[in-house]
Write a protein that binds this DNA or RNA. Structure first.
Length: 508
RNA sequence: GGCGGUGUAGCUCAGAUGGUUAGAGCAUGCGGCUCAUAUCCGCAGUGUCCGGGGUUCAAUUCCCUGCACCGCCA
């Protein structure tokens, strides 16, 4: 394998309780990873946890343990969830790991040698729960604009990164690569931000100690972004395994929420420029979920626990819903009603029922075998051509993270198949002893096999079940998209027959 | 305050270098089939395409302006 693909999620703050937002980004990355593997890529998929900072330090104090102990305890909340959600990450990084600290120190030293780091003084308002600094102007009636709690006034010595120096180079990067930031609306935001000129960035703090000390002056702790973002190069072996690093870097895509766009699209590339490392190819910022029409917040108590959704509706159903319901990149609303509606409409009625009726007919009319077509007629040609075209469209959309459009194409195929069955009425062909029934069921079988592959990145488990129901002995993990998207006659499949509903309707 | 976005059927949205009856899904009503998970298929709709003005033979689509909502920045 010589084609590689490297995709990341942000590293999640270890102190957070994982919610639908964390799940969303991670599933999105998993979908692309699985899709790229199908296409024959050697995929590196990195996620992890950000474990430094004042909040962890304070929480540890409260629990009477060391910050590292606390982190060790908390990290399972994420790793367990990724297992429950069927996340196929190939790497997991924690910022407390030695390999990471080494890279952060190296990056700092390099920048220092370049003259990109200097000692200055930092004065601002700091909100502890949000771990964010605000200027006077940003405060809302003297309170933190995010959480409306009272911030602390801080004035301290701090190291600064000379980001201002990189304004022009970033501008050039943006002009040369219009898809550096996706979707377009986010690109525009970043471009206008950079155009306004970049200010130097405070990259150290003396107000807490849980973090990576500045190499030249240990009382300073390297501050969040200079530490956290670095994980993306640590995770693929920077300084440790140069071959691996060269193999995967530059990263194909950093998937993030829109709230951390600036850090990824502006700070991170400028850090890399200072280090003399290529910037990533794409940064994709997605939107936010509201819950039952309301903003998700701890105080409202409406934070959605992904485990509960999975328990209530199923992993694949949840994964599917997130990307079928809303264009990837836009905001969306999660509601009980909406997910049930999707499951019943798209999965049970359209797709599940199509699968059921198809395998039953193959069992009943062809004794569970797929025969070679002998005669064409009706809309046979149309179906095959449509599938071919829609598969191409699907691939085009997947390439640009337009998951919703990709899924739209899949459901277009499903709709065509339901109509095809209706118009060709295999039960009638069977009764009349028309050999074209072989052709019709051959087309349905092939189309369905292809559809299950197209849905595999979104619903890995259910797709395998369907593949098996279609008599296939191999799993999607051993299959190549380009081979599998063809219509072919299978000669070594097991007998196909009626199966229990794969997506039962949810009543009530 | 600066920059950008959005406003189209009951709901969610698509759309047209300006040109015959403006589309899809869902929801609603009626009809059909029986292979299928009371599933599927067909038919039927309804729209001041945000308001106002302009350009044009012709604008919902272009321009200006107003209103509403949203995002980024200060």
């Amino acid at each position: 394998m010589n084609k590689t693909y490297y995709i990341t999620t942000p590293i999640y703050y270890i102190n957070d309780v994982p919610h639908i937002g964390h799940a969303y980004t991670t599933i999105a990355a998993d979908i692309m990873s699985r899709y790229k593997r199908l296409c024959g890529y050697d995929v590196f998929f990195l996620t992890g946890t950000d474990e430094h900072g004042q909040k962890v330090e304070k929480a540890a104090e409260q629990h009477g343990v060391s910050p590292k102990e606390l982190a060790d305890r908390m990290v399972h909340r994420f790793t367990d969830l990724w297992q429950a959600l069927n996340i196929s990450n190939t790497g997991f990084i924690r910022t407390t790991e030695e390999r990471h600290k080494k890279v952060v120190r190296h990056m700092f030293e390099k920048a220092y040698e370049n003259g990109d780091i200097y000692l200055g003084e930092y004065e601002d308002w700091y909100c502890v729960p949000c771990e964010s600094y605000f200027t006077d102007l940003q405060l809302k009636d003297g309170l933190c604009p995010d959480c409306l709690r009272k911030p602390e006034k801080l004035k301290e010595e701090s190291f600064f990164f000379r980001m201002s120096k990189y304004t022009d180079r970033l501008m050039r990067l943006l002009e040369e690569k219009k898809d550096f930031v996706m979707p377009e609306i986010r690109y525009n935001e970043v471009a206008s931000f950079v155009k306004g000129g970049l200010r130097d960035l405070s990259v150290s703090r003396t107000s807490f100690s849980w973090g990576i000390p500045v190499p030249v002056q240990k009382k300073h702790i390297i501050y969040v972004w200079f530490d956290a973002l670095t994980n993306y190069i640590t995770g693929v072996g920077f300084l440790e395994d140069q071959d691996k690093f060269n193999r995967y870097w530059p990263c194909d895509a950093h998937l993030i929420g829109k709230d951390i766009l600036r850090f990824h699209a502006v700070y991170w590339p400028s850090f890399l420029m200072s280090l003399g490392v290529e910037p990533p190819k794409h940064v994709f910022a997605h939107g936010w979920w509201t819950i039952e029409g309301q903003k998700m917040s701890k105080s409202l108590g409406n934070v959605v626990d992904p485990y509960e959704i999975v328990k209530a509706y199923g992993v694949d159903e949840f994964r599917f819903f997130l990307f079928r319901e809303v264009p990837f990149g836009s905001d969306g609303d999660f509601s009980r009603h909406a997910i049930i509606h999707r499951i019943n409409g798209d999965l049970a009625n359209d797709f599940g029922n199509l699968t059921s009726r198809s395998v039953t007919m193959i069992g009943k009319f062809l004794q569970g075998k797929i025969e070679r077509p002998e005669k064409k007629g009706g809309t046979d040609e149309y179906v095959e051509e449509s599938v071919r075209k829609l598969v191409d469209d699907y691939q085009r959309e997947m390439e640009v993270f337009a998951y919703h459009k990709a899924l739209h194409n899949v459901f277009e195929i499903i709709s065509i198949l339901n109509k095809y069955i209706d118009s060709e009425a295999p039960w009638k062909l069977s009764k009349e002893g028309d050999v074209r029934i072989k052709t019709v069921l051959y087309n349905i079988w092939n189309s369905l096999r292809i559809v299950s592959m197209l849905l595999y990145p979104f619903m890995p488990q259910k797709s395998e079940v369907i593949r098996k129901a279609l008599g296939m002995g191999t799993s999607f993990q051993e299959v190549l998209f380009d081979n599998e998207k063809q219509f072919y006659h299978p000669d070594d499949i097991s007998r196909i027959d009626k199966i229990a509903p794969i997506f039962p309707r949810i009543e009530g």
